[in-house]
Structure formats: C-alpha cells, structure tokens
Design a protein around this nucleic acid. Structure first.
Length: 820
RNA sequence: GCCCGGAUGGCGGAAUGGCAGACGCGGAGGACUCAAAAUCCUUUGCCUGAGAGGGCGUGUGGGUUCGAGUCCCACUCCGGGCACCA
C-alpha cells in the first residue's frame, strides 16, 4: 500500500502556518473587491459542540472560497461575553463572572482554531472589554441625546419571594422565577427604553428587499405586526369624557354591543360607578397579580373568561346607532396596545363572541354569513343591519365607516404595531452599565464622555435579594453630579446584552481607530455584511435589534455613507438533533467534536457537515452518523492514495477517454462552484466524490491516464476541496507544488465552457411518455434528424405497429416523445 | 386558530417540466488474508419472472401538459414560528 498520512500532524502543522502567515488578516485599504463574511457573535459557552462545528465550517468555507475568488475577505471573530449564564455560574461558585467568561472564551477560541477556521484575530472584540464597553455606552448616550433612549415607568417581572426584579430570560416555564419557582408578578418600575417603534414602518418595509430565508422574513413581519384601522371616540353617557378605541373593522360598527377597557386604562376609576367599584377593583388587582401565562392563556373556557371581566356600570354611546352600550373591564384587552380600549363586536370577533356569551351580551350580525356558518364570522360578505352600510362588502364599508367616524366621532385612520419599544434595563451585574447619573436637582444627567467607560467594580455581591447587584455597592453608585457637583446616584442597571450584539459587526470593520466607536469611512468600506451565518434562534430579536441600531446609528450621525440594512444576505443553519431533541449542553446529549479529530480529522468532520444534507436542514445525529463520518474520512484517504499514484498507470500518449475525462473535470468545477454559490454544499461534495470515482477508474484501468490530465484532475480536486477540508488539501498542494505554496492562495478554478458541452449525448426515446429506447446522437442534431432516429428504433416500430403517430415532440438532442 | 416550511429506497439525501433514486451510509456476494481488520471489485427501489423482460413507484385525491417528484386545486400528516395585538 502506498504511504498514508497522519491527519493529526498535518492539521497541527497547517493551523500553525495559518496563524504565522497572517493569510487571513485583511487591511482596511485592501484594493480588491471586498467581502464581509460573518458568523453570529457567539456566547462563550466553552468548547465547541457540533452546532458550532457546523456553523464555523460553513463560515470558514465562505471565507476561503471568496478569498480564492480574489476578494478581500473580512473574517473577524469575537464574543458576546456578557450574560446571565456566567453570572449564575459565578453566584453558584462564589466566583466572578469574568473568570468563567475568560476561560470559556479561551476554550471556544481554541475549538474554532482546532477546526481549522481562520480569522483576522487582530480584530477580535468581546463585549466585556472596557475598550468595547466604552463605545457601547457612548452609543447609549448618543441615543439619549437624540431622543431614541428614554426612561419610563414599565411593568417588570417581579419575584415576590426573592424580592427582586427578573430579566425576561429569568422567567421560565409557566411564568415562574427560575431561582425559587415562585410565580412572577408585574411591578411598575422606571426603566430605560430604546425607541425602536420609531422605525417600525421602515423595519417592516425593508424586510422585503433582504436576501434572507423567507421564514425569517415572515417572523420579522409577524413580530412587527402592522395593522391599519381607525381610532375614534365613544362618548361616555353622563360624563364629559370619551372612550377612545382602535379598530381594524370600523365597518362592523353597527354590531357594537359593548365596549371594553383594559385593567390598566387611566379612565377606569373615573367612570366606574360606586355600585360596581368593588368588582372592578377586584378584577384589576387579580389582573395585575396574574402571571403573563394566566393572562394570555388561550383556554377559552367560559369559566375562565367570566372571571376575567366585570361591568363598570358605565355606558358609552355607539356613534353608529346612537344607542348606549355597556362598558366592561377585561384583561383580554391590553393596556399597551392601541388605545387600551376596544369596541366589541361579538358577531364578527371570536374573543368578543366568547366574552359576550359568558356575560349574556347581545350579538348582532352585521355581515351576511355563508350558508350553515355558525359562531363569529370574520370573512367577507354583504353588510346587513348596518344602516348606511347595508349592501356593501367589507372593503367598501370600511372606507365609508371611516369617513363617517372622521366626521362624527373624531375618527382618524391609524396604523398600529405589535412591536413595542425595547426595554433595555436589566437588574443584573454581568452587563454593560448604563452611563447615566441621577441628581436631585438636575434630574437625569449623562455621564460625560471623557469619564467612559463606566466599569463595574469587582467586589460586588451578586447573590442579593434586592434590585440590581450594583445598587448594593455604595462606592459605585455614590457619586457627584457632573452638572452641579451635588450629591448624586449612578444608574445601577445594566444594558440588555442584545445591545452588545447590535453593533459589534461595525467594530469588527474598524477595531483600530482610537477615539471613536469606529471610523464611518472604514465601516462604509466593509458594510454591509455580505454573508451573515447563524442559528434560526436569532431570527427575531437579535436581527431586529441590529437592524434598528444600524438605522439609529446612521440617523444620529455615528455612521455615514452606508446602507441602512446591516446584513445583505443571511443564512440560517439547521439544528443538530438527537433523539428528536436539540443537541445542547443543557440537555446533556452532546457529541463532542474532539473524538473525531484523531480518526478523520477536522477535515473529515467538516466534510461530513457539508455532505450530510442541505445546510439549512436539521441534522439528526443517529447510530449511522459515525459511519457517514467515516465515509467522509475514507474519501479523503482515497484521494490521497490516488494522488500518490497507488495503482495508477501514467502515459504520455493520447487515448480514448482522455477528452471525456477532461469534460468531467470541468463539469465538476461548474457543479461544485454552483453548489457553493447556492448553498447546496452536499451536492458539491457529491460531485467531488463522483469525480474521484471517475478519475480512479480512468487512471487505474485499461491504458491508464495521460499524465497532464491526471495532474489536472488531482489539482482541480484539491482546489475545489480546499475550502471544505483545508488541511489535507494544503499539505497535498505543497507536496505537489513545492514548499511555500498555499492552495488557498490559488485562484478558484474556472470551467472551460467548451468542455462543458458534450459531443455525443444519449437521447431518450419515449412512446407515450415511457422510455422505450435510447440512442447516442450528436449534441448538434436537428429536431428532424432526432425524430427520424427515434422512429427508426425497432422498439418504437413494434409499439406503433405500423400506425402513424398522432404527435411527435422533439427536444433535440435530449429526448423524443412519440404519441401513438 | 393564523403564518412559514416539509413529506422521494432500509437510512441521509439528488433531480431548469424531459431516463426518479446522483453521492454517501447500510445490506448481500466476491477478491486479498491462516484469520480478522483495512482495502478493492460486483450488486442493491418494490412486485413478478429461471431469464430476457414486464408491471408498479416520489404522503392522499383531482387537474394542467406530449410528458409532473417538480406547476395548479383540495386534503392528510410532520416540523417550526406567532397567538387574546382589537
């Protein structure tokens, strides 16, 4: 047997070479066409698992492929290093989150390097680096100055047992505290918000232009949730007040038989009559105490609903009918959406219908239902019982009703969004401190920029039952007002870690500039990200927040001359699953990559992840998986042995089969390239396997291979495989072309168009759509010639039995279909 | 409930409206070996047939087409997202 290789040695050697050579360091003034490839900012969770391997295999393939295509590729790496897991681990161990985080960052970094993924490590960024925090905080201040950050009272998650505020992520399962299991309730606290709703329209509209997976785009659209309707007044009977409501169905106004206020509605106490006050107060108290789960539970049992609504004793006048209708309070109406009150149309709205049944409220149909329809109907139809709207369809009636409300009830057409402003305050320690100071005299005072970054001290007790850990550290929060010099108090909340991951890609583009977050000119050179790669779990929040940041940074002048969308193309990879569950550390079903490095190497494991199926699909890790991984390793060994001439017969003379071999080489170039461009990596790998099979046959059987064609075949395979399995291809390329030759520094091969077209082709001859014969014909054959050949086939003659075909379809040179 | 995906051999999967099942895994048989591993070769959708061959076949039922895994309509099941947002 020909000599074989030691994959562990080879991978070690090349990983060192790549580190030393700086092959993937890219300068900001590189004149080549730019390409920004980016994997999503990872949370440093320690050694890489298969999900990481998959993610970074795809990312590294893009980097090396685009680089071989002659682009200046920006390939940075960093860590989303703030966050709860480190804080919780530190509390448990009586340690500091930084210790955990730094260690886990080192582990993940080591893992991606062991995989052979290459980055420009000079650009490394991590969220808890004071040099990064400085700019995270400055961006906050800029948002504050521009009215994009504001402070407001908001209901937060409160654990009565721990007496502390919880971040959303700490509320688990059925709305209970993840520490003690107590039901979480809402409590109003002053919180910081980012005004993301200012961009709701733009965030929604520009989704259309993104080259993103359709389902991610849909999820973004649903989350933003735009709806058009009318806002108008329902005047209270006996008060000089009106209940303002929002509806998308003004056309159903004649069917309004009651109105509903949210428990949080500011007018509720005023309009409630004394007779009903006790019941209303009771309901409001229970709504506030209810967990989100209870309140939004969609169990439409009448029992449940009856508890959740109460009559206020008040009436409003329906402007359509001029009749009074009762006003209820119910927690199925949200204080935070629309006007916090609705007109209820039980005949045409499911929720109103269910509520009306329980409370014995009248139901008046205003739209003719299809035959046999029962229950609420929200489809199109002709209006009935609707005065001036009778006979109109929904679209016509909406328009007319909106006009009517504009004249008679202060109606205005209004667009509402499901999207709320982004609550960024977190009562946690391991995050970026919010850089403001509270002064009794001056109010909210931004920390002067020259005092940034505000970094939390190390000696903070995190395991507190109270509010933010930083609030227990007096030397931190006690300060003086930068404006008046008086006693003041620092903000002790930290920012949501999603703020850190909302601009890191800009810092990657320019981590070198001192004195600002980034140089807008440099950033404009690299942005937008050409290929963003990550998990589907970030389909909504991270991507939405980063999109918002980009727009806000442009509008506040921090970024200029740059596209308003940060990520031009997005690819979301599938999950790794085992026994139906997502493979994850918390589920304890990890299959670590380490065990494969000794057998098939990182190269073989990478090849497996590319080959196992379409990159976007989930991967089921089964009992067969190890065999498939071995198969990928086997392919690499077969290539190596063939290249080293095992069983190969070489000749200088020409022979039959030479041209066919060259054709297949060039067809493979086209196929692999197409697969890489279309993210169908599994087919690219398959094409390489096919080529290897063919070359093996060509070189080992009969007359053997012409030397130059054999070399062309091997070199082409190495080039095409280089982005997938970079170590072995590097080693083999160096063996073949000499010390100092990098396969990844070569140009990506280009298929010769003349070799993509065959001289002869097998034409399929069908009778009535079934294949009955085949004939080898020239590619240039005419339709008439094709038909003549087809009709001459004995199989065709037999089936036609002398009859004249009723129809003959020719698609020369591929197919002729004869219809008897 | 609404929205988005998906369904192809024993398995992962391939296939511009034109030979369904490329490629790989697994299986079967063989070569090499004292033997095994490794490697190599042959074979492998299902039914039928000794064989040549024939028939069937891409979740179900219709449709368009000379021709449908692919396009259209209706449905079933599976996965995911959203869900009192008026």
């Amino acid at each position: 047997m020909a000599r074989d290789y030691d994959i562990v040695d080879i991978e070690k050697k090349w990983q060192e070479r790549w580190r030393e050579s700086g092959l993937y360091e890219v300068s900001n003034d590189d004149p080549r066409e730019r390409f920004y490839a980016l994997n999503m900012y990872p949370y440093p969770s320690g050694s890489a698992h298969q999900g990481h391997v998959r993610n970074y295999t795809f990312g590294d393939l893009v980097v090396r492929y685009q680089s071989m295509k002659g682009k200046a590729v920006l390939s940075p790496f960093g860590f989303d290093s703030f966050g709860l897991p480190a804080e919780n681990a530190a509390i448990k161990a009586g340690s500091h989150p930084r210790i955990f985080t730094d260690q886990r960052m080192a582990e993940l970094k080591e893992s991606v390097q062991r995989l052979g993924a290459v980055y420009d490590w000079r650009r490394e960024v991590f969220s808890h680096d004071p040099a990064y925090m400085r700019w995270s905080q400055e961006i906050f201040l800029t948002f504050l100055e521009n009215g994009l950050a504001y402070r407001a009272q908001a209901p937060v998650n409160w654990c009565p047992s721990c007496a502390t505020v919880l971040a959303n992520e700490q509320v688990v399962g059925d709305g209970v505290c993840d520490r003690c299991g107590t039901a979480v309730v809402k409590k109003d606290l002053e919180q910081w918000f980012f005004r993301i709703t200012k961009y709701a329209d733009e965030l929604l509209e520009s989704v259309d232009d993104l080259e993103w997976p359709e389902r991610v785009k849909t999820m973004q659209r649903n989350w933003i949730g735009r709806s058009e309707g009318v806002e108008f007044d329902l005047p209270f009977v006996g008060h000089d007040l009106a209940l303002r409501v929002f509806t998308t169905r003004p056309d159903t106004g004649f069917g309004v038989t009651y109105a509903v206020m949210a428990p949080e509605h500011p007018l509720l106490a005023t309009v409630t009559t004394d007779e009903h006050r006790a019941a209303v107060t009771d309901l409001v108290a229970r709504a506030r105490a209810a967990t989100d789960m209870e309140r939004t539970a969609s169990s439409d049992s009448g029992d449940n609903l009856s508890k959740r609504g109460a009559f206020t004793g008040a009436y409003v006048t329906n402007p359509f009918t001029n009749q009074p209708v009762p006003v209820y309070v119910a927690d199925y109406v949200l204080g935070s959406y629309g006007t916090g009150a609705i007109m209820a149309v039980p005949a045409e709205d499911e929720r109103d219908h269910a509520f009306a049944l329980v409370h014995g409220l009248p139901i008046i149909r205003t739209i003719e239902t299809p035959d046999g329809h029962e229950g609420p109907y929200n489809g199109d139809g002709v209006h009935i019982n609707s005065g001036f709207l009778d006979g109109l369809d929904v679209a016509e009636a909406k328009k007319k009703a909106a006009d009517f409300l504009a004249q008679s009830a202060n109606g205005i057409e209004k667009v509402n969004f499901r999207l709320r402003d982004w609550l960024v305050s977190r009562q946690r320690f391991w995050g970026c401190p919010i850089p403001v100071i509270y002064c009794a005299g001056c109010g909210i005072v931004p920390v002067p920029r020259e005092q940034l970054p505000i970094v939390a001290p190390d000696d903070v007790k995190m395991d507190q039952t109270g509010q933010s850990p930083l609030a227990t550290h007096e030397p931190f929060w006690r300060t003086t007002c930068p404006t008046c010099g008086g006693e003041a108090r620092r903000e002790t909340d930290t920012m949501d870690t999603f703020t850190d991951s909302s601009w890191y890609f800009l810092r990657f583009a320019d981590p070198f500039t001192e004195g600002k977050a980034f140089d807008p000119e440099v950033v404009a050179k690299w942005m937008p990200v050409d290929q963003y790669i990550g998990g589907i779990e970030h389909a909504i929040l991270h991507l939405l927040y980063a999109r918002f940041y980009m727009k806000a940074l442009i509008d506040t002048g921090l970024a200029t001359g740059i596209e308003r969308e940060p990520f031009r193309r997005l690819f979301t990879q599938g999950m790794i699953r085992m026994d139906g569950a997502k493979m994850s550390k918390s589920k304890g079903n990890l299959v670590t990559p380490g065990q494969y490095y000794a057998t098939v190497g990182a190269d073989g494991l990478r090849l497996f992840h590319l080959f196992v199926g379409p990159p976007a699909d989930d991967v089921d890790w089964t009992s067969q998986t190890d065999e498939v991984i071995d198969g990928c390793g086997r392919f690499l060994h077969r290539l190596y042995r063939l290249a080293h001439g095992e069983g190969v017969i070489l000749r200088e003379t020409e022979a039959e089969g030479d041209l066919a071999m060259r054709r297949q080489i060039h067809k493979t170039i086209a196929k692999v390239t197409d697969g890489l461009d279309r993210w169908t990596y599994n087919t690219s790998v398959a094409a390489l396997m096919e080529l290897l099979n063919a070359v093996s046959k060509y070189a080992r059987e009969g007359d053997g291979a012409r030397r130059d064609i054999f070399d062309e075949a091997i070199d082409t395979m190495l080039l095409l495989l280089a982005p997938m399995s970079p170590h072995l291809t590097s080693e083999m390329w160096e063996e073949r072309h000499g010390e100092g030759q990098f396969v990844h520094a070569q140009s990506w091969p280009v298929a010769d168009p003349e070799l993509l077209v065959d001289e002869d082709v097998v034409m399929v001859i069908q009778v009535a759509g079934k294949v009955r014969a085949r004939a080898t014909v020239a590619t240039t054959i005419s339709e008439d010639e094709a038909i003549a050949i087809a009709l001459a086939q004995p199989e065709v003659q037999a089936l036609l039995n002398g009859a004249t075909p009723s129809r003959v379809v020719a698609r020369a040179p591929k197919l002729v279909n004869i219809v008897p």
